[in-house]
Design a protein around this nucleic acid. Structure first.
Length: 292
DNA sequence: TTGCAGGGGTCAA
DNA sequence: TTGACCCCTGCA
């Protein structure tokens, strides 16, 4: 997609398959806030930008051409054509409906470290509280960044958290997850796990590597692989996706393993994108357990 | 007001 | 395979 610059603002005309509400509120990220004018402020890669969509034109404020090319273009996944993917994923009426509902979802390419910690925090937790904890961590250890008079904080890298202990994280009120965060800090800063190397690993090896960190099980690992590493075959199975998969394709007592097998069969390499459409659809429409 | 259930799972036995 | 788990929120 071609961009141009107008009054210091990056613009891209004719943007398809992107809607800020779908992309930023579909649960893949925790660092975007909606303003009263419908635009979104977001923080990533130690920068803060303002993103909005007007009449098919994507508008990115508070950035430079350089940052657009080096960061946001990739972060927002703008070089991927979603039309053929949607076509492939329209395997039945259910998927068609879910895709139609969340038509503007794009899978972001987030920083692995932030994504990892955020999803460690997400376990047995709800989104408003996850955001609160991520923000508190950023406020304490990150760097101040601004969009006009709106103040935000970058997510602290692993190095700047080196050596912290559970007591120091008490203020987060993250509960048992504090220990998991510390384990992640230790394994990354010691070099035991190299987050950059995971880019070059195949899906299963990458998953195994991430799961060496305490608090990282299959679901969290899949989220990080999908939302940071571009491993599109990752299919995070949480309660919502479990519910809707059982409702639509399996029986109510299907195991996680059954669901995984079915998702691979139905969606293959694009399972991750299917997961986002299904998750967003299921959550917004409060899909219940079929047993209830 | 107090009490309880449950939350985008994971760990350990 | 199963229960416990920190802490917060929503709801009787």
């Amino acid at each position: 997609m071609e961009y141009y610059k107008e009054n210091g603002i990056i613009k891209i005309d004719g943007v398809k398959d992107f809607h800020p509400v779908h992309t930023f509120l579909c649960g893949q990220c925790f660092r975007w806030v909606e303003n009263s004018d419908g635009s979104f402020d977001g923080i990533a890669y130690k920068k803060a930008v303002n993103v909005s969509l007007t009449k098919g034109t994507l508008i990115i404020k508070n950035t430079s051409e350089e940052d657009y090319n080096n960061i946001w273009r990739h972060y927002l996944d703008l070089d991927r054509d979603y039309a053929p993917l949607k076509e492939i994923l329209s395997v039945d009426e259910n998927l068609k409906k879910a895709i139609e509902y969340g038509y503007g979802i794009r899978i972001l390419n987030q920083e692995p470290w932030e994504c990892l910690v955020s999803f460690i925090i997400s376990t047995q937790n709800q989104i408003p509280r996850i955001k609160k904890i991520v923000n508190a961590l950023s406020e304490r250890y990150g760097e101040k960044i601004q969009i006009e008079d709106r103040v935000y904080y970058s997510f602290p890298d692993a190095e700047s958290l080196k050596g912290i202990n559970e007591e120091e994280l008490m203020f987060l009120k993250a509960g048992y997850r504090a220990g998991y965060i510390i384990d992640a800090v230790n394994k990354i800063t010691s070099g035991e796990i190299d987050l950059e190397k995971i880019f070059d690993m195949d899906y299963l090896s990458a998953k195994k590597e991430l799961m060496k960190i305490k608090g990282v099980g299959e679901k969290v690992a899949d989220c990080v692989l999908l939302f940071s590493y571009g491993k599109t075959e990752a299919f995070p199975i949480d309660v919502w996706v479990g519910r809707i998969m059982r409702n639509l394709y399996l029986s109510e007592n299907a195991s996680i393993k059954d669901i995984r097998a079915e998702s691979e069969r139905l969606f293959g390499k694009n399972a991750g994108l299917a997961q986002q459409y299904l998750f967003y659809y299921a959550r917004d429409n409060s899909i219940q357990d079929s047993s209830k």
